[in-house]
Design a protein around this nucleic acid. Structure first.
Lengths: 229, 229
DNA sequence: CTTGTTATTATTCAAATGAATAATTAATGT
DNA sequence: ACATTAATTATTCATTTGAATAATAACAAG
C-alpha cells in the first residue's frame, strides 16, 4: 500500500518543546489512535501495519509501543474509545425514552438503539472507520474479539432486551433475545455495506437518502420483533 | 499458532507413485483447498499462513503455488468452489417452489434462500468454515471482496428479489431490494455467531435447537419483508 | 528405450513487520 | 543548579512470510 519512503519528520530525538500554553493532553497519542482506527478498518487487525500508522500519524513507531504496548493493545484501545461513547449514547437514549413514557413504541426503541452508530458513521471518516472496524470484529471468530465486544456492549444490549420485553409481552423474553441478535446482524451489515447495496438494486437505491434508509431499517426490524410467535 | 516443527512428509522429491488404480483427480489439490478453507475461516485472508496450510494438508508449500498461483488466487478458488454450489442450491430451491405454486408464501421463499447455507454450516467442519469465511468476506471493504461476492451470488439474489416482489405487490421493488440486504446481513451474522448468542440470552437459548433457530429467523425476516410501507 | 511432461519436494530469496533498545531532549520538582 | 521523570526519535533484531527456483521422480507417448 505505502510504497513511498514515508519518512517520519526528521527531527532530533528527545521531548519536543511545548508550544501551546494549555496542557492539551497528548496530541500525538490521539493522532495515533485516529490513524490506527483508519488502518484497522481498512485492512483488519492482521493487515494493518504499525509502521504505516506511525508514519501517517507523524510519529516514530516506537511511540506506539510507548503509549499502548503491543499491536493488540492498540487495537483494544481504539475499540474501547469509541465503543464506550457509543454504549453511553445508547444508555442515554433509552433513559430519555423511558422518561417520556412507560411504554414507548418498538420503533422508538429500535431507533434509539441504532441512531448513535448511524450518526457516528456519518459524522467523520473516523466514525465510518470505526463502524467498519466493528463489523470486522463481529466476523472474527477469535476469543479475544468476543471478550471485547462483550465488555463494551453487553450491558446496553441487555437493557434494550428488557425494555423490548416489556412493550412486547406477547413475545417470550428468550425469543426477544434471539431477535435482538438478528437486529444487530442486520444493522451492522447494513451500515458497513451501505454503499454497495445499490448493486443489488440496479440503481433504484439512489433515491434513498441515509435518513430514509435508517427509517426503512427501523420499520423492517420493528416488524420482525413484533412477529407473532 | 503452530509452534511445533510441522515438518511435511520427508519424502524424496518427484512425482509419487500412483497407488490407486482409478484416476482420482488430484487428491492433494483438494486437500489444499480444504485446509485453506479452514485457515481462512479461522484467521482471515491476511492471517492465514501458507506454510501452515501446506503442512496440514500434507504437501510442500510450493505445490500450492503450482496449483493455484498466489495466495489471493487460492482464496478465490476456495470461495468459488463452495459458493457456486450454494448459489446452485438456491436456484434449484426457487425453481421447485415456483413449480408448485405461482404464489409461494414469503416464509417459503425466505426458507428456500436460507436453507442451503444453513445445511452447509452443519454438514461438516469445512462447511462451517466456509460460512465463517463468507461472513468475513462481507466485512471486507476491499474491492476484490466485492467483486467475488457479486460474481458468485448476484444472479440468485436478484431472482429472489423478483420472486418476493411478485408475492408482495404492496411493497415497491426497490424497498424489497433494500430489505433483502437486511436479510442477508441478519442471516450471515446469525450463522456465524450462533454459538455466542447464548451470552446475550443468559442461557435461555439452550432450548433452541438449530432447526428452531432457523424457524425463528425465517419468521422474523418474513415479518420484516412484509412490513407496511 | 528415450524423450518430454506432470506432479512433487527441498531449498533459497527478499521483503515486511512487530518488538526492542539506546539515545536524546524537555519539563518538573527540590 | 541539579537530578529525576516523561516524551520522543533513530536504529537494530529476530521472525515470519509469500514467492521463486532448482531438483527429482513417475508417467505417457512415440
Amino acid at each position: 500500500m505505502a510504497e513511498q519512503k514515508l519518512q517520519t519528520k526528521n527531527r532530533s530525538p528527545g521531548r519536543p518543546p511545548r508550544t501551546d500554553s494549555f496542557g492539551k493532553a497528548s496530541d500525538l497519542r490521539d493522532s495515533i489512535l485516529d490513524h490506527a482506527e483508519l488502518a484497522f478498518a481498512e485492512a483488519g487487525f492482521e493487515g494493518a501495519n504499525l509502521r504505516e500508522i506511525a508514519s501517517l500519524a507523524g510519529v516514530n513507531q516506537a511511540l506506539i509501543r510507548y503509549y499502548f504496548g503491543s499491536k493488540a493493545d492498540l487495537f483494544d484501545e481504539c475499540f474501547r474509545r469509541r465503543g464506550g461513547v457509543l454504549a453511553g449514547h445508547r444508555h442515554v437514549n433509552l433513559d430519555r425514552l423511558l422518561e417520556i413514557s412507560e411504554n414507548p413504541s418498538v420503533e422508538d426503541l429500535v431507533f434509539a438503539y441504532l441512531k448513535p452508530q448511524w450518526d457516528m458513521k456519518y459524522s467523520s471518516p473516523n466514525g465510518a472507520a470505526f463502524v467498519a472496524m466493528q463489523a470486522r470484529l463481529h466476523a472474527e471468530p477469535e476469543e479475544h474479539a468476543l471478550r471485547l465486544r462483550r465488555e463494551v456492549y453487553d450491558a446496553s444490549v441487555k437493557r434494550y432486551i428488557s425494555a423490548l420485553s416489556q412493550v412486547l409481552p406477547q413475545v417470550p423474553k428468550d425469543i426477544i433475545s434471539v431477535r435482538m441478535a438478528f437486529l444487530v446482524g442486520a444493522y451492522l451489515f447494513m451500515l458497513n455495506d451501505l454503499g454497495r447495496i445499490s448493486d443489488l438494486t440496479e440503481g433504484h437505491l439512489t433515491s434513498f437518502g441515509k435518513d430514509e434508509m435508517l427509517d426503512q431499517l427501523v420499520r423492517f426490524l420493528a416488524a420482525g420483533l413484533r412477529a407473532p410467535v
